[in-house]
Design a protein around this nucleic acid. Structure first.
Lengths: 190, 190
DNA sequence: TCGTTTAATTAACATTTGTCAATGATTTGG
DNA sequence: CCAAATCATTGACAAATGTTAATTAAACGA
């Protein structure tokens, strides 16, 4: 039992997923039809609806698999007394992206889904805000909300650039770069 | 001649645009149908297709109107010998957002369109990269691409937070805040 | 104001999307 | 291996989407 799903389900889901990944390389989700996926995956069109409500539901479920892993990583780095070690957390997160690059690359890019980015942002918000205050050494300012958004969105932009550029750097290298930018800003780096 | 379009076109386009804006307040573009827009705007469904190919085409055209204005503002601040004055440019851009808040707020948010953000980023890339090197005082590093993405995406995240929060601050206040974050990072602010 | 031009409506149509019951095929647990 | 359960396929269907030609209505220029 390699999974707790029926082997047939795994097979057809993989077929559909591969088809979607292929289609996403050339057009946005909004231009992809169920019929296309079914034809490319060589399955009956009705079969699609046994698993997903529509194209967007399919994308959301695939996203949620990544989100869940993202969540677990963040949890494992904030629960244990929060040593405030940013680098190991970032390294793991970049590793997660590279392992799921096929979809993450699209979902974070111009053909991507803003809701996916929003979910990622909210996870960070809920779980890292306390730490963020400490780490960033921000005197409790009314502008904190903007600082937070600047940093988190900036990081996601870097993730996108990394994925789009073919992930030339290692997760550890990216973690180091991002940590420095977060803590000291761009100018202090170089 | 208040516009170069037929008065009827202006009227129906406004009806459709208002209907879309209203619908976008409660659901994403992918959940909005042509039929809904037509009913809400009280026009014939076929009339929609005289102006737009589909919902996404409509959104894209509305985006492009904002993009065009964005472009003009950036141009007017980079063409004239580029005094490198960031603050006036940012102030105008935040002003543009506030004037088009009804759509900008959605397009930048979680129900938004990643392609819209991508276009904005690319405008900045094409027109501000030279200036950015000077302003940010970055020694030509291989990581420049990441710095650039961090800053631009960070700024867009701040724009989103500002729009989503009801635009409590003035464009000038936001310009000042963003300028400081861009040049000196978050930590140096507060 | 009048004729011309252009847009909006209507109604019919083809295509696509989503749903469903019946059937056939495969997996799983025993 | 067998039987029960689960899944995929098929074909039919309703609803939604997109297209079109003919008609009606409105705006424009002179």
């Amino acid at each position: 039992m390699p999974n707790n799903e029926d082997r047939r389900v795994r097979k057809t889901k993989k077929l559909m997923t591969d088809a979607l990944a292929q289609l996403l390389m050339e057009k946005p989700l909004s231009a992809i039809s169920v019929r296309e996926i079914a034809e490319l995956a060589d399955i009956n069109r009705g079969t699609f609806y046994l698993h997903y409500r529509d194209i967007y539901d399919m994308a959301r479920q695939l996203q949620d698999e990544i989100i869940e892993k993202f969540n677990r990583i963040v949890d494992s780095h904030t629960s244990r007394e929060s040593t405030n070690e940013l680098f190991p957390l970032l390294t793991e997160l970049f590793g997660l992206l590279s392992e799921n690059a096929r979809f993450a690359q699209v979902m974070v890019g111009k053909n991507g889904d803003a809701a996916f980015l929003d979910k990622l942002k909210n996870i960070v918000r809920e779980k890292c805000l306390a730490d963020a205050h400490k780490m960033l050494n921000i005197k409790n300012s009314g502008d904190f909300e903007y600082f937070y958004n600047y940093i988190v969105s900036g990081c996601l932009g870097v993730c996108h650039a990394w994925l789009a550029g073919g992930m030339k750097e290692s997760p550890a290298q990216m973690a180091e770069l991002v940590e420095r930018m977060m803590l000291h800003g761009v100018r202090a780096v170089s």
